[in-house]
């Protein structure tokens, strides 16, 4: 067994530290070491988006990031989306629009959509589809997910106006 590296990082605004083997992915560290199982594994090779988190504001698939690369970074996972005890407008819109069926893809979609709306508050349908193209959902056919993001974008623009 390889010896472990000490990693200091920030996750969902909180300083965290953990030990990991150099070969372990950030996804594995989040789930197995830190108990943050909201981030899901669907493929472990960057092709499903279930493991999507942001690192220093960039959308990444955490299965393709090494745990050691999180050193010094700011990581946001689905557990960091809600605003305290209130749901984020995206989370509410997903529920109100029935944008999840099994829900395994939902954490990844929420993180990716949140990053989109931070970058582009008023995306059109095609921009939303493009930003979410790395997130696979097998249950919904995406229709209700797109509508949920549109609704959240409207609400958030209204709130910021």
């Amino acid at each position: 067994m390889q010896s472990k590296v000490h990693v200091q990082t920030t996750i969902n605004g909180e300083p965290r530290e953990f030990l990991c083997e150099p070969r372990q992915s950030l996804l594995e560290c989040l789930r197995d070491t830190l108990g943050l199982t909201g981030t899901k594994e669907g493929c472990n090779d960057g092709n499903c988006g279930a493991c999507t988190v942001t690192m220093d504001g960039r959308v990444v698939t955490s299965c393709l990031v090494l745990g050691v690369e999180a050193a010094g970074a700011e990581v946001t996972t689905v557990e960091g989306i809600a605003r305290g005890s209130a749901l984020h407008p995206l989370q509410r819109a997903f529920l109100e629009n029935a944008a999840l069926q099994c829900g395994i893809c939902t954490p990844g979609f929420l993180v990716a959509a949140n990053a989109l709306l931070e970058a582009e508050p008023d995306p059109d349908e095609q921009r939303i589809r493009l930003w979410l193209a790395n997130n696979l959902c097998r249950c919904t056919g995406y229709d209700k997910i797109i509508r949920a993001v549109q609704q959240a974008a409207r609400e958030m623009r209204g709130a910021n106006a």
Binding site: R31, L36, T37, G38, T39, K40, E41, T77, V78, E79, I81, A82, L87, Q91, F94, L95, E96, A98, L100, G103, I104, T106, P107, L110
Partner: peptide
């Protein structure tokens, strides 16, 4: 809104692999 909704949009729902 579905009863398990809050758990599933916050990442709290425990799936088999979790």
């Amino acid at each position: 809104v579905r009863h398990d909704g809050a758990d599933k949009v916050t990442g709290r729902a425990i799936y088999g692999g979790d």
